[in-house]
Structure formats: structure tokens, C-alpha cells
């Protein structure tokens, strides 16, 4: 080795850190003011919702109090009460907690299905790929929302897990497509060929070589997906085909607005929930978009 090489190596020894990954994404995120603000607000909201709901007594809140129907916001009921005299603020917190948790669970299950099938399809190719892709093509042209509603309305003893299951059946396809196309590109790179010639089994190559290189794309996609899934869940709950009645959602509160009188004159029942969804969606999306830009920049820098 010549001396020039040595010099270069010594200079670079200090920054021992992978050129990709979470550190870079984090650096990009804090550079983007709006995204950082959204991130802080989001964390604050989520923490508040979960901690506060921990101290709430759900039975107390869902108890009907006919003496206190449609009370305006006051010191006792910060956001007033609904048609059953139930505290809206408490319902808002519990609904938000449920919507967030279930949105998160759906994101996890759809990601698990989508990533697994996408990576298998892209890595192995051939007839496996052909079958999976034709299956996805079929699901993609289905009128998904309608079929989900039909499913929800036919399940006996309908509960939250049914809802998560039904959603997971239909909302993994675009993720599988994305992961497949990225895996196809990754598979052509020589480090995968090298691992094959070094005798590493396929499942190890997928788990320890290919997937880590897709991690930033997966994180971005999951973030944006979380927002999308909360939107779909609350929307379905609004229509009455989302979470079961025992598990109130933000959409349940908003659905009170189907009554024109509530919509017009008792805005405190539904408007806070609508605005909370709006704020949550915007925050998650701004963070997600910032992550997306960060991940792209990484690719450009190579």
C-alpha cells in the first residue's frame, strides 16, 4: 500500500457511521422547520392522548346522563356533551387513542403482508412473481371501499380484530408493488450476486442484505400509510362501518353531525374531532414528506 492511501484512511477513520439510515434521515428532518414543528406537535399530541386516556374511566364517560344533554362547553365538560349527555372531550381522547392504535396496527399488518410478498416477488421473480402480481392486479381493480363495507356488515360478533383483518386483506397491495420494484432494482446489484456466490442462503440475503437497504423506503411508506389508514378507518366509522360501537373512534363522534341540528347548532360535538383528525393527518404527512425527501436525497448522493 502506498502512503497516500494510508493518509486518506486515517483521515476518514473518525467518522465511523453508515452513510445511510436513520441518522441521515433524522438530520434532514430537523433541517426542515415545518416538518420538525409537525413532528414535535405530533409527539406531543400522541403522548397527551395516550397518557390522558390512561386516567380516563371509559364507563364513566359512556354513561348516559339525560339531565345534561347537549350541554355547551363549560368548566366541567370542556367540550360540552352529546345527545346522551356524555362528555365530548373524554370521548375525543378515547376516540383518538383508538383511531391511532388501530391505524397503527393496520399499518403493521399491511406492511408485514406487503413487504413479505413484495420482497419474495421481486427477489425470486419467475412464476412466483407472476402469480403474486396477477393477484395484486385483481385486488387493485376491485371497488375496495364497497367490498370492505360489505365484509364489515356480514361478520357476526363483529369486533376490532375483524376490522383490522378485513382492512389488512385489501390494503397491502400498493406496498407490495412498491417493495417489489425496489427489490427488483436491488437484486440486480452485484452485492446480491456476491452473497449468492459466497454461499449465503436466499432467506439470509433477503433479510440481512436486501431489506436493510430498503429500510428508508419502508419507513417513509409506513409513515404516509399510517395517515392513510387512520383516514380510512375514521371515514368508515363515520359511515357506521368502521370500529364496533364498543370501541368509539374519532369517526364515531363526527358521525353525530349527520343530524343537521347537531351539524348546525351543536358544533362542539363533532367539530373538535374533525379538526383533530385534520391536525393529526397534516402532521403525519408533513413528517412523512420530509422523510421522503431525505430518502431521495440519500439516493441522489449515492
Amino acid at each position: 500500500m502506498n502512503s497516500v492511501d494510508l493518509n486518506v484512511e486515517q483521515k476518514e477513520t473518525e467518522k465511523i457511521e453508515a452513510p445511510t439510515g436513520l441518522a441521515v434521515i433524522w438530520r434532514e428532518l430537523i433541517k426542515d422547520k415545518l416538518a420538525l414543528f409537525s413532528f414535535v406537535l405530533l409527539i406531543g399530541l400522541v403522548l397527551f392522548i395516550y397518557i390522558y386516556s390512561f386516567f380516563l374511566n371509559q364507563d364513566e364517560i359512556t354513561k348516559i346522563d339525560l339531565m345534561n344533554i347537549f350541554a355547551r362547553p363549560n368548566a366541567q365538560n370542556w367540550l360540552g356533551t352529546d345527545y346522551g349527555g356524555r362528555d365530548v372531550f373524554g370521548q375525543l381522547i378515547i376516540g383518538a387513542r383508538n383511531s391511532l392504535t388501530i391505524g397503527f396496527l393496520i399499518t403493521l399488518t399491511t406492511s408485514l403482508i406487503g413487504i413479505t410478498l413484495g420482497v419474495i416477488s421481486g427477489y425470486f421473480g419467475g412464476w412466483v412473481d407472476y402469480v403474486i402480481m396477477r393477484f395484486i392486479d385483481f385486488i387493485l381493480v376491485l371497488p375496495t371501499l364497497m367490498i370492505v363495507i360489505v365484509f364489515v356488515s356480514i361478520v357476526p360478533d363483529y369486533n376490532v380484530f375483524h376490522f383490522i383483518f378485513i382492512m389488512s386483506l385489501f390494503y397491502w397491495t400498493s406496498k407490495a408493488r412498491l417493495i417489489r420494484s425496489k427489490t427488483l432494482a436491488e437484486r440486480e446489484l452485484d452485492y446480491v450476486s456476491a452473497s449468492k456466490t459466497l454461499g449465503t442462503p436466499d432467506w439470509k440475503i433477503i433479510l440481512f442484505q436486501v431489506l436493510p437497504n430498503l429500510s428508508s423506503i419502508i419507513i417513509v411508506n409506513m409513515t404516509l400509510n399510517l395517515a392513510g389508514n387512520i383516514g380510512i378507518e375514521t371515514g368508515l366509522s363515520y359511515l357506521g362501518f368502521g370500529l364496533p360501537e364498543s370501541v368509539p373512534s374519532l369517526g364515531t363522534l363526527i358521525s353525530y353531525s349527520t343530524n343537521p341540528d347537531v351539524m348546525q347548532n351543536k358544533w362542539w360535538v363533532w367539530l373538535p374531532a374533525a379538526l383533530l383528525i385534520l391536525v393529526l393527518m397534516l402532521c403525519i404527512n408533513f413528517v412523512g414528506q420530509a422523510l421522503k425527501r431525505a430518502a431521495d436525497a440519500r439516493q441522489r448522493l449515492g
Binding site: A18, P19, T20, D190, Y191, S193, A194, S195, P212, N213
Partner: peptide, 9 residues
């Protein structure tokens, strides 16, 4: 290609 044949991570 010495760039793509080593996994950057």
C-alpha cells in the same frame, strides 16, 4: 463494479 458489489450498510 467495486461500488455495487459491496453492501454499503
Amino acid at each position: 463494479d467495486p461500488y455495487s458489489s459491496l453492501n454499503v450498510r
